[in-house]
């Protein structure tokens, strides 16, 4: 497919770089210059990606303001082309990008807020999956409880930061009081993203709860994860942790370790 694929590769580069299409491309516009057509495509390209980022990162945009956000997305788009025909996949690298983005260096928490926003974005579009079937648990003999491997729902994510990112995120949600003040020294955040009745929520976990959930999410069986946490946090309450996570739709299916 040499001719067609070469044509398309030239066209794609011209759109992304905002160039005129080379004369060899045989592009024709009888009523205006080819450059005008290419400007429309270039504008579509940049505009669609900008709007997509604004939709995925609304808190980041509010934090820095629309003008700054436009400068930020312009450079992001130059660095990261889209890789999917579904725009909802675009923008995954934003937290890393912000961490290295010189003009935003003063906002030390911004990268972690962006990471939390991406987790929320993914949670919103994540596949549906049944949450933990408690009655299924009743068929497991009590002596095997320690071997339970509990899977989390595809919409569950955890973002841990030394800054209060969950409080920042919640303060920017529709309906929140816009007259807020957040002190960055108010502490770290273990932000849990979950989806219940199709609504994405951000809540806080304790250090112990976050450590436990991280262990569970890495595939550790219940006994191992719990012992590990209790060693470091003797006050950890497994009972409460399980009930809260069940209520938030975080827990999904389970399997038994060493059993098919």
């Amino acid at each position: 497919m040499p001719a067609l694929s070469n044509d398309q590769a030239d066209f794609a580069r011209a759109i992304v770089l905002g160039l005129d299409l080379s004369p060899q491309a045989h592009a024709v516009c009888p009523k205006y210059r080819v450059a005008t057509a290419m400007a429309v495509y270039h504008n579509n390209y940049r505009g669609n990606l900008h709007d997509t980022l604004a939709s995925a990162y609304p808190v980041t945009e509010q934090l820095v303001g629309k003008d700054f956000f436009r400068v930020l997305t312009k450079q992001f788009i130059e660095q990261y082309p889209s890789r999917s025909g579904n725009l909802h996949h675009y923008g995954a690298e934003m937290a890393d990008f912000i961490a290295d983005f010189e003009p935003a260096q003063s906002l030390v928490y911004l990268s972690d807020v962006a990471a939390l926003e991406w987790a929320c974005h993914r949670a919103y579009f994540a596949e549906d999956e049944a949450t933990l079937d408690v009655s299924g648990l009743s068929k497991v003999p009590a002596e095997n409880y320690a071997d339970l491997v509990i899977h989390t729902h595809p919409a569950c994510h955890m973002v841990r930061s030394i800054y209060p990112i969950a409080a920042i995120w919640n303060a920017h949600q529709p309906g929140a009081n816009s007259d807020f003040h957040i002190d960055l020294d108010s502490g770290s955040s273990n932000a849990l993203v979950s989806r219940k009745e199709n609504t994405v929520m951000v809540t806080e976990l304790t250090e112990a709860g976050a450590t436990w959930l991280q262990s569970i999410r890495s595939g550790a069986p219940l006994g191992e994860a719990t012992s590990g946490v209790l060693e470091r946090y003797p006050d950890f309450n497994l009972n409460t942790a399980l009930l809260n996570l069940l209520e938030q739709g975080v827990l999904a299916d389970f399997t038994l370790e060493n059993m098919p």
């Binding site: 694929s5 398309q8 590769a9 066209f11 794609a12 580069r13 759109i15 992304v16 495509y41 579509n44 390209y45 669609n48 990606l49 997509t52 082309p81 889209s82 890789r83 999917s84 025909g85 725009l87 675009y90």
Partner: peptide, 12 residues
Amino acid sequence: NSAAGMVINDLL
């Protein structure tokens, strides 16, 4: 919508 390792999210 796809060439040169990129996707252009448009109808080309």
